[in-house]
């Protein structure tokens, strides 16, 4: 458990903009152990998705690099499965077919046809989607879509699972349910997980460590909090746990005192509008 599985060393990235390069991240260092659950938390726009995309290989770091099992990561691959912020299922394929596309890609040469079928069914059952396997994304709820997205990622048997605000768009009840499922699955499979979240409770409940990021530009790791709560964790029992509440307040202190958003509101909205424009153009 103590062996370094994934390492970010001195990672920095500059985005080209009309006003010259924009340094989104600078000198991000992080070591993740095998089977560890790490959360990334920070204010909106600080660069969490960018970190995740660099680990996924979807963005290239300008400085530094990412090592997975000692080998440098420089392109995307199925061993680093991503669950995207908005599920990203192919709308023209059923839940089954969405998972199948990934499974065939990863295991098409090593598993037989029946094994593939069983594996798809197994992963959909794992996220409790067995009853709606043949529905298309347009016919299932947001929570169900997110679960299929998770099943698709798990079915690739990744060595690192990357989750970008997987439960961000869900209601509190569904979210709690999926958090429990995720804890259960991770305990069962021992997958290394990096998860982005905005939700302090979610971070404390699920993580082994919480990585708190400073505000951008030139965002970096501000503080790392070790969450040494016993597993399996129960959200109801933890609500009255003094240590849990202490950890929670540490994260809140970091976010709302040390890294308070100092930009005036108007500046932020124009900045995000610009960022939006940029993505539209690109």
């Amino acid at each position: 458990m103590t062996q370094t599985h994934l390492e970010l060393s001195g990672v920095g990235i500059d985005f080209p903009t009309p006003k010259g390069p924009f340094t989104a991240l600078n000198n991000v260092n992080l070591k993740v152990h095998d089977g560890e659950f790490v959360s990334l938390i920070g204010h909106s726009g600080c660069g969490k998705s960018t970190v995740l995309n660099i680990v996924a290989g979807l963005h290239q770091a300008t400085r530094g690099g990412v090592l997975l099992n000692g080998r440098e990561v420089n392109e995307p691959g199925p061993e680093r499965a991503v669950v995207f912020q908005n599920h990203s299922l192919l709308p023209w394929l059923s839940a089954w077919e969405n998972v199948e596309l990934a499974v065939k890609r990863v295991f098409g040469k090593t598993k037989s046809r029946t094994e593939i079928k069983e594996w798809i069914a197994h992963n959909l059952e794992l996220v409790h989607m067995g009853h709606a396997m043949h529905k298309r994304p347009g016919e299932i709820s947001g929570g169900m879509k997110q679960r299929v997205g998770i099943a698709r990622a798990l079915a690739m048997q990744p060595s690192v699972l990357l989750l970008d605000e997987p439960f961000g768009a869900l209601d509190a009840l569904t979210r709690a349910h999926l958090q429990d499922s995720l804890m259960e699955i991770q305990a069962q499979l021992g997958t290394t997980v990096i998860m982005i979240t905005h939700d302090v409770d979610e971070a404390v409940l699920l993580s082994d460590r919480i990585v708190m990021m400073t505000n951008g530009p030139s965002a970096t790791v501000g503080q790392i909090l070790e969450v040494d709560l016993e597993r399996p964790r129960n959200r109801l029992a933890l609500a009255d746990n003094a240590h849990y509440n202490h950890l929670r307040s540490e994260v809140l202190t970091f976010l709302y005192e040390k890294q308070r958003k100092i930009e005036p509101f108007s500046a932020r909205t124009t900045a995000s509008a610009q960022a939006k424009k940029k993505t539209e153009v690109a």
Binding site: A56, E75, P76, P78, V82, N86, S88, L90
Partner: peptide
């Protein structure tokens, strides 16, 4: 996002 899915796969 769909392009990213394709890249990851």
């Amino acid at each position: 996002d769909l392009l990213n899915v394709s890249k990851v796969l």
